[in-house]
Computed example of a mutant assay.
Amino acid sequence: MNLTKSSNPAFGKAVFERAQVGVQEDRMTIEGTVNKTGLMLLILVFAALFTWRKFFGAYDFSSPENAFSVVGPWILGGGIGGFITAIITVFSPRRSAITAPIYAVFEGLFLGGISAFFEAMYPGLVIRAVALTFGVFFILLFLYRSGKIRATGKFRMGILAATGGIALIYFVSFIASFFGASFNFLYGNSTLGIGFSLVVVVIAALNLILDFDFIERGASSGAPKFMEWYGAFGLMVTLVWLYLEILRLLSKLASRD
């Protein structure tokens, strides 16, 4: 089965090679993947509401650290749990019907707490980030379905290289922080910092094109039915990344006002 590469680590060619089954098994469809993506989004939203309400239930303008201490363990647990579940899903796609919804729960807990932090600092920021995330998603979906943007070989390699470069920068920054060094442009609101965040948002958004293409090719190539859950999981990985980067960009802009 000749499937193309994607810069989303959840959508590598080897995934479909590991997922091959007998000819009698039901096959993956785009409609089924869309339905499962919608279900995962609902799960994520409900989980996010839990940590969101927990944060603001303990939030006090005079002592905001109380809310931070209450919701902190949930954010940490959601982040670690989401990462572990994502790794398991990538290496065992057959389990994605179980692990993908669990991933949505963990990511919801993480995003709900993180979003509450930003909302407390900049009221109204989260709804704008959510609107922009889905706006970008539907615009790119329209452009892809209309054929205005296609995942050509050069396009894939360019996005793959850019995504890898961003991941390397974040990794080096994380390691450098243990030695007292900091990459201010990653977190500051300088022109360079805002420019970098804008570039990352664009790269994250363009990953959606590769994901759409990968799902379409999987369905047309007769991938097994359980890959609908895996396709939904991979798309969620990109959407979560895109939302976080948009949230970061908007917070930088808001801090300059």
Rank of each mutant, 00 (worst) to 15 (best):
F171M: 10
G79Y: 14
V130Y: 06
G234F: 09
I30P: 00
A86C: 07
F171C: 02
E245C: 01
G234Y: 11
N184E: 06
E17P: 00
K148F: 06
T29L: 04
P123S: 11
F68T: 12
L186P: 01
S7D: 09
I87M: 15
V202I: 12
N35P: 01
G153L: 04
G113T: 11
R94T: 14
G164R: 08
F212V: 11
L39F: 07
D60A: 11
V34A: 13
P224H: 14
A223S: 13
M121P: 01
E245L: 01
D211E: 04
R128F: 08
M227Q: 12
L244T: 10
G147P: 07
G158K: 00
A86Q: 12
G234T: 12
F61V: 10
I139Q: 00
R27V: 08
L244G: 02
R94W: 02
I209S: 04
V15L: 08
T51Y: 03
L143P: 09
F185V: 08
V130S: 06
K36V: 03
L140Q: 10
G22T: 12
A176K: 01
A14C: 03
F134T: 01
V237T: 14
L44W: 09
G195T: 00
K154N: 10
I175R: 05
T85Q: 08
S251P: 04
R94L: 06
K13W: 03
K225Y: 06
P101F: 07
S6I: 04
L253N: 05
A58K: 14
S221H: 14
